[in-house]
Design a protein around this nucleic acid. Structure first.
Lengths: 359, 359
DNA sequence: TCGATTTATGTAATCGTTTACATTCACTTT
DNA sequence: AAAGTGAATGTAAACGATTACATAAATCGA
């Protein structure tokens, strides 16, 4: 028998050491009477080891409760089995449902998920970018609409990253990375057409934050919808918003105070629509009898609004799973489509109806 | 000059290699004309290196864009600078706001956050537990009310973990780990007393899933509140729920169909309260005129319900930050309090009022 | 001025895997 | 029977940092 590692010396013979440190591959190898290489192979490529050895290794692993040290494994194999997910706001339920899909798919593939919650901080972004450079993660899913080191306005050199990146939800303008998204433009167009089809002539639009890629698409869809129905685009009917409940409330107050109101309001997300409905109702307007309101996203509370909200359903969980799948393919070295578009669905509930006669 | 690493051979002299691999500490050391030890020290303990060396090292690091490889660092130092957060449901906005607090605090301390979304799967749990054993994380925050390897009913040997654990939100019965929570019992008692104070005599309680630690506390608080006001506890007034919107809807349907109704319903979370209000309103009952409804948690949509929901506000973000702080202290080897309780606040909105006269 | 202490630095072992390469042995194949 | 194949395994060299220990130079106290 060969000389053992120094650590062995801690233990008195025939007695357990006080604090048994985690078993290493060496310990398994010794107990199974094989080399460490065989243990490693038994785990990573069982077909390459004999049945006998395999059995002894499994036995030893079970006995010792062995789990391979991940740092050593990453260091040697240059893979972390970990994916970074960068997103602007973790507490937004829209993102967290996508996260579920991502986590689920990554889990299946044996990968872990590290969360990078930007919270509007550029420093945070830089540090998350570093995760890709330090080898902590093998790739990143970007839900924030821009590349690392690129500010929202498009200035700033995009940071060079050597790991695969995938854009989720928001296409990243000018970036040559795979994108998974829903067809925001088509969906917004469909909603606009639906409202026009109910007879509305003055359809307002509550937009998202300026410069947001998502917003650009949705707004364009709204515009296209108007133009397709000969209604024409009127800039006065575009009301400023920022995807928050509060924005919806503000818009509601503005509308209550104004003389001529639109007969329908299409909000570019559900939070704003819910805030809006609430405010209109408090101000004495009946939705949808006096004014129709529609949203976008179909968050869980959309169906719980009063009245239940007409909106666009996005396959959020599926979006997440798909994004994870794409990055996993990329990590396997497989080719992936440049762009994947998932279908949306117009969900008609009770917040929309034909406009009032004299409207 | 000593012989260099084999990798050097790839590069033709005076010419950049085709794919420049990431710089290593060796490269920095060579450029700065110091040893790797000095580079390492310049980064981890700048006070120990001379000003001149420090300057040359910084210069070299900047020039090479050097970032230390995290696997190597973890392997040698036996620290991952990473914390696991285990939670039952990522898409639940209640948890995701706590997550924000956690992430925020961990970020400040230079730690990353790995998400373990259980999704009701015991296998997932086992694998997340393994994260602590493979050295992938230095500690774990448990938001799921039980230890690794312990099933909800308390059976099953809790898995031995060598890393610090901290329980967040739900105290873990019998586990000897630090706990950060709000005083659910006191808050539920306060809400019950408030409803009784409005004049209600029949106050129903919609409970959470059986066996849930949180639920046990809240229910006890409800009971204590009733007993403190001489109303007495009536098991018939405890309605089954599971913290979902759907449960609220079911309870609403039950109430609409029943002859004698409570005049107030205290739901053990907001989702159920919102589903309930919605269903009661659809069934023709006016809240709070005919029946009062209260929730627990104060999620963002509570204020947007119609009518806005009376509920208990929990400092979610603060809860997350505190939890992260405690585990960071533990990782530093500092002592921490066994239990931390954060204050809640009774938020009175418009879903509660005095009972109808003939009630 | 001389040893003792402090400060700055270097050398090399170490963390625990994976894996390129070498070796052994049992079978074919001619 | 010799050579060639393939399967199973072992040996030892990476992976890239941290850090114990050694050494050299500078500072200090007497």
């Amino acid at each position: 028998m060969k000389s053992q590692t120094p650590r062995e010396l801690d233990a008195t013979p025939d007695e357990e050491p006080i604090t048994p440190r985690a078993a290493r591959i060496q310990d398994v190898a010794r107990l199974a009477q094989v080399s460490t290489a065989t243990v490693s192979r038994a785990l990573s490529d069982p077909a390459r080891v004999s049945a006998g050895a395999k059995a002894r290794v499994s036995e030893a692993i079970a006995r010792l409760g062995y789990l391979p040290n991940s740092a050593a494994r990453s260091l040697r194999s240059q893979k972390a089995r970990m994916v970074l997910v960068v997103l602007p706001d973790l507490s937004n339920s829209f993102f967290s449902e996508i996260l579920q899909g991502i986590e689920d798919r990554l889990y299946e593939a044996g990968y872990g998920m590290i969360i990078g919650n930007l919270d509007g901080s550029p420093q945070k972004e830089a540090r998350f970018a570093a995760f890709t450079a330090t080898g902590q993660v093998d790739g990143a899913l970007l839900l924030n609409g821009h590349l690392f080191g690129q500010t929202r306005d498009g200035h700033g050199e995009p940071m060079k990253t050597s790991v695969p990146l995938v854009a989720l939800c928001e296409a990243i303008p000018g970036a040559d990375i795979p994108q998974i998204e829903v067809d925001n433009r088509a969906a917004a167009r469909a909603m606009t057409l639906y409202l026009a089809g109910l007879g509305h002539r003055r359809i307002a639009y509550v937009c998202g934050p300026a410069g947001n890629v998502l917003e650009v698409e949705r707004c364009r869809g709204y515009r296209e919808g108007l133009e397709a129905t000969q209604l024409g685009f009127d800039a006065d009917l575009v009301l400023p918003g920022d995807y928050t409940l509060e924005a919806g409330i503000r818009v509601g107050q503005t509308l209550l105070a104004s003389e001529v109101r639109p007969t329908a309001v299409f909000c570019s997300n559900d939070e704003m629509a819910i805030g809006l409905i609430r405010t209109l109702a408090a101000g004495g307007l009946r939705v949808p009898r006096d004014i129709s309101v529609a949203g976008f996203d179909d968050i869980v509370f959309a169906a719980m609004a009063d009245p239940p909200l007409t909106t666009i359903r996005q396959p959020r969980r599926e979006l997440g799973r798909k994004g994870a799948s794409v990055i996993l393919d990329l990590l396997k070295g497989q080719g992936v489509p440049k762009r994947i578009r998932l279908e949306t669905e117009l969900v008609v509930r009770e917040s929309t109806a034909a406009p009032p006669p004299q409207g």
